[in-house]
Design a protein around this nucleic acid. Structure first.
Lengths: 341, 341
DNA sequence: ATCAAATAGTCAATCGATTGCTCAAACAAA
DNA sequence: TTTGTTTGAGCAATCGATTGACTATTTGAT
């Protein structure tokens, strides 16, 4: 019941206004409001705090940040906002950023050219204290820019030689996918990966293959395509045109998995009667026909953790690679069944 | 072939550095680099420009903005990043923002409480020049905050008494949906709307009802639910439990439409043999079973236009409501057919 | 009563860039 | 030669907040 009596106008007031109203110096006001190592009479302190509340004072971020050389903003570079995988990651990052007192600048970068431009805007103009990179930086231009970056940066869901990263245990996802299919009785398995190959795809494949091998299965067929529903659609088509069809497929990513389901339907192959599919999870995977048995990965935790790491780096801690230690989890729905007789 | 000879370190240099190197005053450098009404010898100008290129100078955004009282940033408040409808809007906004030289601060606001907090951070701290609001502001707290906002703001895909908005012609979408179903021969129609009711839902319904009435159809059944796949799923379930079932349904939004398709499958009602569904379009609508016949609306154009309007307002132009004049367009896929015999 | 120390603040520089005003030198006109 | 105008560029204030150095007034100890 302290304030709130009258809802005051938005924070247009400056330190100077408060100082004038109370009759002290702006430096005094600043120090009082920031606990800045100063001794003031309780009376003065109260007058300042009250006035600050009355006018609903908020520090002018630009001025403050210019002085303290921090922006209170984080940037994130990502390739595709409409991709729910990124959206979930961004969400986690944004929540954590808010928690830690940052605002979030997001830049969707369609290609390496726009990447470089966005990067320049955010970093060279010193608009951010740290950068989360959710794109694969491959052009020399981008790599150089990032390597010589004056601000801390962390890759999320991507590993990179040129910086620290926060990822999940993709190999474990691959192993789990294989285990699921094998336990359902499948022996002819296939993998749908990405082209160009993402490191996530590569690790999931590695885990998948590892478990298949351990079970004594023949080498698995791999087919690749763009990371999109359409990519998965086309990929499964190709798989279904093979002389000897697989009965179980692991689609390395939810989008690709959804596309695969659509392709099966078009080809008249029933899931799971004719073909079992396991993929990574996401909300969309619940509403396919049939709903997808999928592996949940902690995307938003990954985003959140990226912010935590970045914040630590900003405060001078040594950067480190982190792998989120929440193990992948199988969500059983309806896309996996026994192989056809 | 001017620069690029050696790729220079990132923009750590300040005006002062350049001034020192060239042997002039910082104000001269500033004026030269900004075409700031000053006459200098060609020699001096060239020396400054060359040095600026050499050190890859970029103005320090904070310092510059503090002085000129503009941040070069826009904010956007939206409820759900993983919702592809918002993602598409944001994408359009972001592209246009880049075009216009802004960076974009995005805040996902789960509820009105976080809304208020995010709003404060962005606006009261003067981090942005303008705000795009993609959420429905209903709490008194939020409304007051926005009404007394010191920065220009525009609602996108939402109409509001407390500000200008950029929307699409939702009534036309509704009419087109009705026309599509009616022309396919349907007479028992239903509508799935939102709860709480969004203004978009309400307008789409109005257009839908208008055309139904004009065709002499009986009053249509409306059912509402949360704007999500799950909401559409539950809504269609309820519709299918009605004593007299509709044969054609208009789902006011893609997410809801996708949920409805899933519900139909679970109930064993075939689309389009037993039930026709038309909804709004989005990339996901292609990969349902069957693919959805849907109405495309210019979401990213809407986002882009919001930025254009905001930019105009920032430059002092009178705000105005705009309705994107790209008419909704029917994408014929497989979810609409003749009614069952 | 005297000196030291704590108390309560103020002063002024600073972050980096922008911009109105001033001013010296060069040049032209009278 | 004197006066007036241009050209070329520097000076200093400013945006709003932060912070180390410093001062003036009290209080306390001896």
């Amino acid at each position: 019941m302290t304030q709130k009596l009258r809802s005051t106008p938005p924070g247009r007031a400056t330190l100077k206004d408060i100082a004038r109203a109370v009759g002290v110096d702006v430096s005094t006001v600043s120090k009082v409001l920031n606990d800045g190592g100063i001794s003031v009479r309780e009376q003065t302190r109260k007058a300042i705090v009250d006035e600050a509340n009355r006018v609903n004072y908020r520090p002018h971020a630009l001025a403050r940040n210019l002085r303290i050389q921090r922006t209170g903003a984080l940037g994130i570079l990502l390739p595709d906002l409409t991709n729910p995988i990124y959206a979930a990651t961004v969400r986690g990052a944004m929540r954590q950023a808010e928690e830690a007192g940052y605002v979030m600048l997001v830049a969707e970068v369609a290609d390496e050219r726009t990447s470089a431009a966005a990067y320049l805007r955010l970093v060279s103009e010193r608009r951010i204290d740290g950068l989360i990179i959710a794109v694969t930086a491959q052009s020399k231009e981008m790599i150089d820019a990032i390597k010589s970056s004056p601000v801390p940066h962390v890759f999320v869901n991507r590993r990179s030689k040129i910086g620290r990263s926060v990822t999940v245990d993709d190999q474990a996802s691959g192993r789990l996918a294989a285990k699921t299919l094998i336990e359902a009785g499948h022996t002819r398995l296939a993998f749908i990966g990405s082209e160009p190959e993402l490191d996530t795809s590569q690790r999931r494949r590695a885990g998948f293959v590892e478990t298949c091998k351990a079970a004594g299965l023949p080498p698995i067929k791999t087919v690749v395509g763009p990371v999109s529903r359409r990519g998965g659609f086309d990929a499964l088509h190709r798989l279904l045109s093979e002389p000897v069809r697989p009965t179980g497929v692991f689609a390395f990513n939810m989008l690709v998995g959804i596309g695969a389901v659509a392709a099966a339907r078009v080809r008249g192959v029933r899931i799971p009667e004719d073909l079992s599919i396991v993929t990574l999870d996401g909300e969309d995977a619940i509403f396919t026909a049939p709903p997808l048995t999928a592996i949940a990965t902690p995307l938003s935790e990954m985003g959140a953790r990226a912010v935590v790491e970045l914040d630590a780096m900003i405060h001078g801690r040594e950067p480190q690679d982190v792998v989120i230690d929440i193990p992948p989890q199988l969500i059983v729905r309806e896309s996996v069944g026994p192989p056809p007789a």
